[in-house]
Write a protein that binds this DNA or RNA. Structure first.
Lengths: 259, 259
DNA sequence: GACTAGAGCATGTCTAGAGGTGTTGCGAGG
DNA sequence: CCTCGCAACACCTCTAGACATGCTCTAGTC
């Protein structure tokens, strides 16, 4: 095991913060390797001579910072740094589609991780107001909703929900789980909606409990929100895609002219 | 006071989560107004018939989500939704500069808040490696560093640090606190570096304690990181700008072609 | 009228202990 | 050799109470 320090009761810092600081330093300095197990709560109580809650407060602070993960019944471990996906704004370039690849798979090729898609659900609903607005639909306009979850190396990294006006999707593979080669953008182009441009609205916040479960992340890990709207050559909005990404796993790249 | 529910001991959800869920619903539904005070811990203990730690666990969950803020000695309050700044990728459009406005002021005009700039510091340093790389400088290349803090209606919303190769900034107003009409981009164009395009790398994470202090934010508020590189018409990188933004205050907008 | 001491109430931190649930490995029995 | 049951051990949640610290208002004093 690695060498732990002692608490200085004279300092103005609370014992819990001192304990957290020791581990934080050890982890960032690499003295504790990724996936390495921390001493158990009982061992820490013994070592520092403090109460259970004090130790747990210290560990919670580290969990909130995303430095460690606690696994029920097993122990507390140093969280491994997630692979970062650099996502460039050319990820929807036509060449990827004509090669028969959807955007997510095209990225995976570049960065080199094992991609998979999960929990595909398809339904017809009336569009939520934010979506209706962006798709220029009436408030009760109908949309095909495709929701799914993306995983890299088996770890969830993103959930996505696409909204396509029902009139553009009816009777196409967009309404089927497997949307065919090139994905739904290729199907939209089959329908004569040649894609011209995208807008993306990017924000970040803390996840809701539901999102935490779905993305299998702990406390203290923020999410990136990207709301993308796709337009065809006529300027007609043909799809809105609402994604929630595990923030530490992403770096979004954009390129734009000075005009 | 607003109407609180009761705990259902039969449910599989823990009491703490049930309490948190009640407040989460009430806040998002608007039944609890921004800045409204929640019942004190003592009142909640009384009302739900639980221990102090249970109540505190529930409140901590809400703090971590950024829904409430606890003020020592005063109480716990619904966090007011900050004014959201929609930041479009045309914010560096030349027309804003030719009108003599820097980007931040141009945005303020559109959205309508009182902008101010703060803590301007200027120095010459050797470029950090990430910056040197993006500016195509040698590892010991010298840069002029302009760091400052932006405020909207008196609240800090963003810190920014610009790095300009010393060879482009020497003897210009870039090295002075007031960089003149149109800001440093206008000065770079004065030097013959007509701006052609920008790249931005966007990420999000929890703030460091230093950043929390500088941006005056509490626990549970993530930050957006934007690293912008500006290129002139020759394709030469002329500036790197590293910004840390209070995530709930920002919505970044990008527009790009399908290509 | 201005200042101060203090009461009351708010959250912050810690101690001490109980019962619960998920995981693992080992030994007894088939 | 394999399987099942169980003990040991990990974290999770809650109870109960103590003391510390920060904020605000009030009553008393100068």
């Amino acid at each position: 095991m690695f060498q732990l320090g002692k608490i200085d009761r004279g300092l103005d810092q609370t014992p819990a913060r001192q304990i957290a600081a020791m581990f934080r330093r050890a982890i960032t300095a690499g003295e504790l390797a990724p996936n390495e197990q921390l001493p158990s709560e009982a061992q820490l109580i013994e070592h520092f001579g403090v109460a259970r809650m004090t130790v747990r407060n210290a560990l919670q602070e580290l969990r909130n910072e995303g430095l460690v993960v606690a696994e029920h019944g097993k122990g507390t471990f140093v969280r491994p740094a997630p692979p970062v996906r650099r996502v460039a704004s050319d990820r929807f370039a036509r060449k990827h589609r004509t090669e028969g690849k959807a955007a997510f798979l095209a990225e995976a090729d570049k960065v080199g991780y094992a991609p998979s898609v999960d929990r595909v659900r398809i339904s017809r609903e009336t569009a939520p107001s934010a979506v209706a607005e962006r798709l220029h639909l009436p408030v009760d306009g109908e949309v095909v909703v495709r929701s799914r979850r993306y995983l890299a190396n088996g770890r969830p990294v993103e959930t996505a929900v696409s909204y396509i006006p029902a009139s553009f999707a009816a009777g196409t593979k967009i309404e089927e789980p497997d949307s065919g080669p090139g994905g739904i953008y290729a199907r939209l182009e089959d329908q004569g909606h040649t894609l011209a441009r995208f807008t993306e609205e990017v924000g970040a916040r803390m996840p809701t409990p539901d999102e935490r479960r779905e993305l299998e992340i702990g406390d203290g890990v923020p999410v990136l929100l990207v709301l993308r709207t796709a337009y065809d050559t006529q300027g007609v909005p043909v799809e809105v895609c609402d994604t929630v990404k595990v923030a530490p796993s992403y770096l979004l790249e954009y390129d734009f002219p000075a005009r």
